[in-house]
Design a protein around this nucleic acid. Structure first.
Lengths: 203, 203
DNA sequence: GTCTATAGCCTGATAGAC
DNA sequence: GTCTATCAGGCTATAGAC
């Protein structure tokens, strides 16, 4: 009853375990700091066994990045031209903040990659990502021209949302060191909502 | 005419060259990605010769971090209780943005360290950095109570300044990939100034 | 599919001549 | 002070038994 073409349940489970473990290790130590042995142990496998499922450390990293980039940009894609401008933007900000809270490893995986010059995803950034941002920046500019939100540089507006929200994931250690016992995600949502309301309310 | 206690000119020059080269390499590749050989070559020295000046790769990294952290926090220290609140904050924001433009390597050195959990400077973050931020957050809170700037969470206000300004250095590749040929630092100062004016103007 | 053993490379650091 | 040569350890990846 072996199925030679379709991945077996064991294969699917092991590949998933490897990717989960790799996300843990890559996001915490960066590409160079992560070792195959460490990922394998975290996934409950031996090192050669891990390399039976993926041809190389590089391949695991690539698959992780590609697979997660899409999800990561979903909230921006969801920015709806038909919705209320300010509410759409605030929903985007909120969603991004929730992702920093709930998926900090994903955020740090990208942060690690980009701080070091994005050697593996640079092509995607200047094609797919640029195209998406161009589209949404045009939408923001239209809303501004219609007077429905205040006029600011649309690209820098998007950058500000990225940086403000991802900061809580990427610089988590620093934020917590400064705040002490206070939970960062207690005050953050109210702060960013206030910020974007005041920045974008027309008039 | 050798001076056994005082560093000679050659020593001083070589140590400086090593630190300069190390900043280049560490900030671009992270601690693990940087190799002693690469730093040595960039400094115009052989690997053993570099290790004549510094006992280890770790020692170079530590000296860099310690030496730069102070400079990095100077703009926050300069926040003047006697000045005009909004203008003081805007000056701080502007100075931070200039540092991202003029010293992006320093920003990325810290970003690399912090994203990976700040293993080497965590103690400093929760003592010195926390103390400084506590002091300045108290100042901000006082200004808010006096009604001289609008009321927001002072710590998150500081985090927002850090993240917004350093984003242009740390995520430089992404920002440039999205903007294409447009210079990020053309639109950024006006954007952040508008943002903080609208956020903090009382009323 | 999973293991032990190991090849082969790279890296941090040292030895020792000059 | 600076070099060449080299060691010792850690790493990715593979070989080959089961």
């Amino acid at each position: 009853m072996t199925r030679p073409r379709q991945p077996t349940r064991i294969q699917a489970r092991n590949r998933a375990a490897i990717l989960e473990a790799a996300l843990d290790v890559f996001s915490a130590l960066g590409y160079r700091g992560a070792t195959v042995d460490r990922i394998a142990t975290a996934a409950g496998l031996s090192k050669p066994n891990l390399l039976y499922y993926f041809p190389s450390k590089e391949a695991i990293h690539e698959e992780l990045l590609g697979r997660l980039l899409d999800t990561w940009l979903d909230p921006l894609r969801a920015l709806d031209p038909e919705g209320d401008p300010l509410e759409e933007i605030l929903a985007y900000v909120r969603r991004k903040l929730e992702m920093s809270r709930d998926y900090p490893r994903e955020s740090r995986l990208f942060a690690n990659e980009i701080v070091q010059g994005a050697p593996r995803i640079h092509a995607i950034l200047s094609t797919d990502l640029k195209a998406l941002v161009d589209e949404k920046a045009a939408l923001l500019a239209r809303w501004m021209e219609e007077g429905r939100i205040a006029r600011v540089h649309p690209y820098h507006l998007i950058f500000s949302i990225w940086s403000l929200t991802q900061h809580y994931a990427d610089f988590d250690v620093q934020v917590r060191a400064v705040l002490g016992s206070e939970d960062p995600f207690a005050g953050a949502p109210e702060f960013v909502e206030t910020l974007y309301r005041r920045l974008l309310t027309p008039g």
